[in-house]
């Protein structure tokens, strides 16, 4: 399994454009294929080899319960997607796991060690790194300095050591070589000496992911890595995420786009109103009516899911309306939905 794969840093270079790189990455085999075959698709289900376990995690803001997760296990080496409607508590849950926010109660373990009260900078040193929903490129620093910052631990980051160049210059050269290799892998070498603030939104997402890899993480947590990225770059980003898995790293990511989730994730966790309401493989989740209710509510959008799902929603809503004794409303829903489905089929 994952242990047998050799993790090679920055040895792959995409050659031509971003598209070529992602094609390379997408061809990589999935080291966790089949791992989830025996996992029960229900909230809190145990995994064969969990890297991260969260139990009874609770966070309230005033009277509002933002996160209330009973049990969650994250499979090592897999790509796990965390989905849910806006305000479901995904980012708050991320913040709790990564130490950016304090939980009211609960217990989180990383590889068996309790990390509940561990501050973020210590977690990074233990191999857990995150990115942010709103990218945090360090604008007034060069791209290469952004990258070099990620390496940890660095001797020259201690004040007294920093005074004597010879104590850190050797390691600095290694860090720079590693940074250059990663820039090459992400096809960002041409931006090397530019200020990070001059990059486009998509490039910032790339650099943030590359910078996170400088910490040599075993667990990478990506908060909406595809948000605001154009379709071409999305493909490249997806390829890089698969590349992380191929290297044996565990990935958890928050995402809204179901196509993306279906494309790359091995396992999907669905949150709504702070709780985990479903878990399962992407195929299983996209047929789950609880999920659809939580996600779509009344303003469903048939683009998100396939026809099967639309049929399921249709059924539920029509039944609900009919139960209310409102036949006109039920009929209206049927008309509206069939219209949408027809347009879908007529389209390209």
């Amino acid at each position: 399994m994952t242990d047998e794969r050799e993790v090679v840093f920055g040895s792959t270079s995409g050659g031509g454009g971003a598209g070529a790189a992602s094609a390379n990455m997408a061809d990589l085999v999935n080291p966790v294929a089949g791992v989830f075959d025996d996992v029960v698709p229900e909230p809190g289900s145990p995994k064969p080899d969990p890297i991260l376990i969260a139990s009874n995690v609770m966070k309230t803001f005033g009277g509002l319960t933002a996160v209330d997760v009973e049990h969650l296990e994250i499979q090592r080496g897999a790509i796990t997607a965390l989905i849910g409607p806006n305000g479901a508590g995904k980012t708050t849950f991320f913040n709790l796991l990564t130490g950016f926010d304090d939980m009211d109660r609960g217990r989180v373990t990383l590889d068996g060690d309790v990390i509940t009260k561990v501050p973020p900078h210590r977690l990074a040193k233990r191999g857990m790194v995150r990115t942010f929903q709103l990218t945090k490129a360090l604008s007034r620093m060069k791209v290469i300095d952004n990258m070099k910052l990620g390496a940890t631990p660095q001797r020259g980051e201690s004040f007294w050591v920093s005074l004597v160049t010879s104590l850190w210059s050797g390691q600095e050269a290694e860090v720079e070589a590693k940074a250059d290799a990663l820039l090459d892998r992400f096809n960002m070498t041409h931006m090397r000496d530019e200020f990070a603030g001059t990059m486009s939104g998509g490039q910032r997402k790339l650099i943030e992911m590359a910078r996170a890899l400088m910490t040599d993480p075993k667990l990478v947590m990506l908060d909406e890595p595809m948000a605001g990225v154009n379709p071409a770059l999305t493909q490249s980003l997806l390829g890089h995420v698969k590349g992380l898995r191929a290297e044996g790293r565990t990935v958890i990511f928050v995402e809204h786009d179901m196509d993306v989730v279906r494309d790359i994730s091995d396992w999907v966790v669905v949150m709504a109103e702070g709780q985990i309401i479903a878990e399962g493989t992407p195929d299983h989740i996209s047929a789950n009516t609880d999920v659809i209710d939580a996600y779509l509510g009344k303003h469903h959008d048939s683009d998100l899911f396939d026809d099967e799902v639309v049929a399921a929603v249709l059924d539920d809503e029509v039944t609900a309306a009919a139960l209310d004794g409102d036949d006109d409303a039920a009929a209206a829903i049927v008309r509206e939905l069939s219209e949408e489905v027809r347009q879908e089929e007529d389209g390209p």
Binding site: F132, K136, L138, S162, R211
Partner: peptide, 26 residues
């Protein structure tokens, strides 16, 4: 000297965005 060292780099990163620096182990 200190500002061209990794210590200074981390300090500038904190000036730019404290949370990003913390997420990267600083």
């Amino acid at each position: 000297q200190i500002m061209r060292s990794p210590w200074g780099r981390a300090l500038r990163a904190i000036r730019e965005d404290e949370d990003a620096a913390r997420a990267l182990g600083k």
